[in-house]
């Protein structure tokens, strides 16, 4: 469903250039829950941002359902991000002036054909367990709750792929489990494809597969996660 071909990303020029990605080749199937792991500076976040069309590769192609999205003009990329992708960031990604409910249905205002998105946003907030927080503002709820709102927002347009960039990095252990359980349920019950960057080893138990990055290249990817590795 999504595969990359010879993906490179270089920051800067000349002798000061940093090669964040060096010819990444990977393939992720529909319905997979994949973790991207690796040491700091291995290129995990860069890969996620490029796959999610937040940044441009220096070289290489990204195919989603056969379309090379890396070559799309900015307007179409924005449309792709709106309708096909969902994003959950590390922290503080909600619009502070909007209520929890408004934050969730915000991306749907442009993409929906009627006003049913408000009701759907309520349903999603019920799924993430925040029905009692609908009219609260982000500053009035905890970090874990904010992430659950961000997850609800990320799926309001029923995206093909959900990208999550270290979604539990700023959360306590309990909140982290709630968020990861939520991802698991979305993947299991709704068949949601999820690509999640994480460097927490224990997060491996939630995912179908791990793609390891080392120095900007895939170290181990594509193979199902074995019980040995989990242990």
């Amino acid at each position: 469903m999504i595969h990359t071909s010879n993906l490179h990303k270089t920051y800067g020029h000349g002798s000061g250039a940093v090669h964040a990605l060096k010819g990444v080749e990977l393939q992720i199937e529909t319905g997979e829950f994949v973790a991207v792991m690796g040491r700091s500076g291995s290129g995990k976040s860069t890969l996620l941002r490029i796959l999610g069309l937040l940044d441009e590769p220096t070289q290489g192609d990204i195919y989603v359902d056969g379309i090379n999205i890396a070559r799309l003009p900015e307007r179409k990329k924005a449309k792709f991000r709106l309708n096909k992708f969902g994003f959950v960031f590390q922290e503080h990604s909600l619009v502070s002036e909007l209520t929890v409910l408004e934050n969730v249905y915000l991306p749907a205002i442009c993409s929906s054909h009627n006003n049913e998105y408000i009701e759907y946003a309520r349903e999603l907030l019920e799924v993430v367990g925040l029905t009692d927080r609908l009219q609260h503002y982000p500053g009035e709820i905890s970090g874990g709750e904010q992430q659950r709102v961000a997850i609800a927002r990320s799926i309001v347009n029923k995206p093909k792929i959900l990208f999550a960039d270290e979604p539990t990095a700023s959360l306590d252990e309990e909140s982290s489990h709630i968020v990861l359980d939520l991802f698991s349920r979305l993947n299991r019950d709704m068949g949601q494809t999820i690509i999640m960057v994480t460097h927490e080893p224990e997060d491996r138990k939630y995912v179908d597969r791990v793609i390891y990055l080392r120095n900007g290249a895939v170290d181990l990817g594509g193979a199902p996660l074995s019980p040995d590795l989990l242990n």
Binding site: A78, R81, P107
Partner: peptide, 16 residues
């Protein structure tokens, strides 16, 4: 600025 970036990231159209 950061909020604008997030709005763009979640696909809110530029002209909106």
């Amino acid at each position: 600025k950061r909020q604008i970036g997030i709005l763009r990231a979640v696909g809110i159209p530029r002209d909106a």
